[in-house]
């Protein structure tokens, strides 16, 4: 029996994983969510910004990791549009512009926001450091035109925006090392306030920056998206995803426990 469990075909585990994701997707459940301090800090910061403020959102995640940052982007953009906060979108990754542009358009349409007045998408420019540093002196020196090929200086909401001095917050939605780059080069060099919404894989490495205040807030993966949705009182993909993930988490915890019980029994038998 023990041998059988230990040598179980990995495809059995694959089927179990598939089932614990499919079942709650078909029959969703809703569990209460506790909001963590880093997410609340970000929410509170945006909440205190006056109407007409500007935040920049860097969509630094690719199609391979869009599951978590997209609900975050939706929640934050919805919050900003409802408060009259303007959004400048851009990306440091070459495989993201179409994704980010489509997402901004969609959320803006849902919130009756107007391109060029309430939000703009600058697009992508190669060279992470050069882009971050270049925008610190003059955004239009890096993005002379936006993603839709409109001259940035002629876009109404960009009229009074030259560099980071006019940006109240930079939110990096990231799946890689871009948040560190924003902290090191935009926050340290130009003093722009940074917050992040990151995929769960890189959450742990953000905490030293959170404690020092180099990050003013942090949305950790699906949990962060769900927490922000709770604060907005608008459950969305983050809440659904987090509840669905519960079952798969329980399965994996169960598998780890089972694997260890079998391991210790076997070790005892072998003396």
């Amino acid at each position: 029996m023990l041998e059988k469990i230990m040598n179980m075909d990995r495809r059995v585990i694959f089927i179990l994983v598939a089932l614990v994701v499919i079942f709650p997707t078909l029959v969703p459940v809703r569990m209460p969510i506790t909001v963590s301090e880093p997410t609340r800090n970000l929410y509170d910061f945006i909440e205190t910004l006056p109407s007409g403020s500007t935040i920049m959102i860097a969509f630094d995640y690719g199609p391979s990791s869009l599951a978590e940052p997209e609900p975050m982007a939706k929640a934050v953009m919805q919050h900003c549009f409802s408060k009259g906060i303007k959004i400048i979108g851009m990306t440091l990754l070459p495989n993201t512009p179409t994704l980010a542009h489509k997402l901004m358009r969609k959320i803006a349409a849902e919130n009756n926001a107007v391109y060029g007045e309430d939000y703009v998408f600058l697009g992508y420019r190669p060279g992470t450091l050069q882009v971050i540093l270049g925008m610190g002196t003059d955004i239009s020196s890096v993005f002379e035109t936006d993603y839709e090929n409109k001259t940035v200086d002629e876009i109404p909401m960009m009229e009074n925006i030259t560099n980071y001095d006019q940006i109240d917050l930079l939110l990096d939605l990231a799946s890689g090392s871009t948040t560190e780059a924003w902290i090191i080069y935009a926050n340290t060099r130009y003093g722009v306030k940074i917050a992040a919404g990151v995929t769960a894989v890189i959450i742990a490495q953000m905490y030293p920056y959170l404690q020092t205040g180099q990050l003013i807030g942090l949305m950790p993966g699906y949990l962060g998206a769900a927490e922000y949705e709770k604060l907005l009182n608008a459950p969305g993909d983050g809440t659904i995803g987090l509840n669905t993930a519960t079952y798969a988490h329980l399965l994996i915890i169960g598998l780890v426990i089972l694997g260890n019980i079998a391991f210790f029994i076997q070790r005892r038998r072998e003396g």
Partner: peptide
């Protein structure tokens, strides 16, 4: 961390 990450 896993158990704390999900509402359950």
């Amino acid at each position: 961390v896993m158990i704390g990450n999900v509402p359950v």
